Simulated scan of single mutants.
Amino acid sequence: MTASRAPRTGPEHTPDGTVADTAGDPEALLAELGGSWSWMLGSALATLVPGVLILVWPDETLHVLAVVIGLYLLVAGVFRFVAAFAREPGERLPGLLMAVLFVLAGVLCLRNPLQTIAALSLIVGVVWLVTGMLTGYTAIAASWLPHRGFVFGAAALGIVAGIVVLALPVESAVALTRLLGLWLVLLGVVEVGVAFAWRAALRRARGGLRTGPAAPV
């Protein structure tokens, strides 16, 4: 889930949440990129699109499902790695842990020996459960975070998704496909909501800086 990150609203952001010029400072560049609403939207689409593809073609083989899920986890891991730099240095650990977890899980899904129904269910279920917990921790710790309700919703959905995938016995690849596709779509929709909520918060913050008494004339 991409809702776990807590991007900053410092003066480096442009009014629409895009990335400002941070040439020469890779860490600042990653912070600006990870804190932009458009990066959050891209992360949400990286979850939503695989879910839609899985639901559209539910009769594909387990091998195809494992490849799609593996690629989703790898791409999501990259998004989470960059997003972690949008936090203060002391608050980056949960985001970096999620990024590592997603990448490792993606590699496992792409390995042929592990392409079984039970293994795929276990990998995805654990990833969603752990990241849901970390997202909830982020929402609780970052009291300043705007629209925390969306973040709590994403955390709860991730935890429920992980529990459902781990607890329900899945006896066929078709059933697993439908289950994973449904949860990916639900998670993607929630993350899209988080991205647009963050865009609104950034615009309000920028507007306040421009119109406030401390704004330059």
Rank of each mutant, 00 (worst) to 15 (best):
A142Q: 15
A139F: 10
I123Y: 03
R8M: 08
H63S: 12
F79P: 00
L145I: 03
A23E: 13
V68M: 14
G106K: 11
L187M: 13
A161D: 07
T135N: 02
P94Y: 13
P26N: 02
V217R: 12
L108D: 10
T177E: 11
G34N: 10
G125M: 02
A173V: 02
T22G: 03
G181H: 14
A3H: 14
L97N: 02
Q115M: 13
A23Q: 14
R206Q: 02
I163A: 15
V19Q: 04
G193Q: 04
I140E: 09
G212W: 02
V194I: 14
F152C: 08
I54G: 04
A197V: 01
S36L: 02
A214Q: 10
L74W: 12
L48N: 09
R148A: 11
V126P: 03
W39H: 08
V19N: 04
V56W: 07
V165S: 04
A28H: 09
P11W: 10
I163W: 08
H63T: 14
A105V: 11
R111E: 13
L134S: 05
L157Y: 03
V165M: 04
N112H: 06
L71E: 06
L71N: 04
V78C: 08
W39C: 07
E88M: 11
P216Y: 09
D25N: 15
S143R: 15
G136C: 11
V126A: 07
L45A: 08
C109Y: 05
A86G: 08
M40Q: 14
L209H: 13
G90K: 13
P58I: 09
G24T: 11
R206P: 00
